[in-house]
Computed example of a mutant assay.
Amino acid sequence: MDLTDEQRMIVDLARDFAHQEIRPRARAVDEDDVESPMDLWRSASRAGLTSFMLPEAVGGGGVTDLYTQVLVQEELCYGDIGIGNLLTSNGFFAAPVEELGTDAQRKTWLEPLCTYDPPMTALAVTEPGVGSDAAALQTRAVRDGDHYILNGQKAWISNAPYAERTVVFATVDSTLRSRGVTAFVVDRGTTGLTVGQPMRKMGQRAIVSAEVFLEGVRVPVDNRLGEEGQGFYGLMRTFDASRILIGAASTGLARAALDTATDYARERHQFGRPIIEHQAVAFRLADMAARTDASHLLAVRAAKLYDQGLPVSEESAIAKLMGSENAFWCAWAAMQTLGGWGYSREFLVEKWLRDAKLEEIEEGTSDIQRLIISRSLARA
């Protein structure tokens, strides 16, 4: 792999942190259920892993190319996908601020994320009745002098119970669909903003999710990102990047499942020989290896195109679709290889199967990714 010294340094740092800090905590964090591991968050921030992707101009690590971010995300999520995704979650808040914000807004809202004890942030798009169709948002933003009044409800918002600031996407006119979507930064404690109880989830419990309620929330005009109606563009650009990163995160989980299954197959004997010598097991491991390598390469391809400024909606959809479905399949395949031990909590395999399912659902289900790809084919 052709990397600069700087790229290799941050990838090696992520790999070491995943092995030494993340993996040993994976089971305990999962069983904590609705508590994020704040001690790991602080350790990662001191190492620069919560802000490496932010620009140097605001105090970040300056690793702004998506290619390197993909490599780092894969390594962190090899340790544990829930914890890995948590540690880089401020990047999702930062993306629309970078894409749409002014220099003053970037300084105000991104510099605090680059300290040794950064706040957590959130991105609020999904609503109870609106999932992947972001153009159909029902949360309203009504101009009132030098403020906007926000009313609505958001669901499944990652980090919501911890977030000090949230980028909220709302519409100034629902009849305009995408052309009405506008982004606002809302501070924790703003009157009318409340957060629901943590949601009990199947997997990726390191990231605590909750509903967010907005009732007459007054937001200064200065907290608007870009002009009215520009939010959808910023959101789609954010999704292009985040779907590629989901592909990378999924690849990290798939690699973990492959390594665990391979090690077990080498050590476990049946009928007088290691089970890795049994054709059914060997072929399953071969499929895991081939699929995971393809998943990695698809994420890398999409990231490199993104870094060139090219349209990547199709490539990002492919990276997410193939990466997420492969992660779930590899977790299943690892469980098959380990048999009863895979079904027990003696190993992390059962957790990985639960964790992997989220990647097929979040930021557009697999069906949505197939729709994006098919529409691209129809236009070709």
Rank of each mutant, 00 (worst) to 15 (best):
L13I: 02
R15W: 01
R15V: 00
A18T: 02
Q20P: 00
E21L: 01
R25N: 13
V29E: 07
E31I: 05
E35P: 00
L40V: 09
L40W: 07
L40P: 04
W41I: 04
R42E: 11
S45Q: 02
V58M: 07
Q69D: 06
V70F: 01
C77R: 01
I81A: 12
L86Q: 06
G91L: 09
F93H: 05
A94K: 03
L100S: 11
Q105C: 12
W109R: 00
D117N: 14
M120R: 14
L123A: 11
D133F: 13
L137K: 02
Q138H: 13
N151I: 02
G152I: 09
S158K: 01
N159K: 00
T166L: 09
A170Q: 01
T171K: 01
L176N: 06
S178H: 12
A183F: 06
L193Q: 00
M199Y: 03
K201H: 02
A206K: 05
F213P: 00
F213D: 06
V217R: 06
P220F: 06
V221C: 12
D222V: 04
L225S: 03
E228N: 12
G229Q: 10
Y233E: 15
G234N: 10
R243A: 08
R243Y: 01
I246N: 08
S250C: 08
R255G: 07
T262D: 13
F283P: 00
F283T: 14
T292H: 01
A317M: 05
F328Q: 10
T337W: 05
S344D: 05
L353I: 08
A356W: 02
T365F: 10
T365M: 06
L371R: 12
I372K: 13
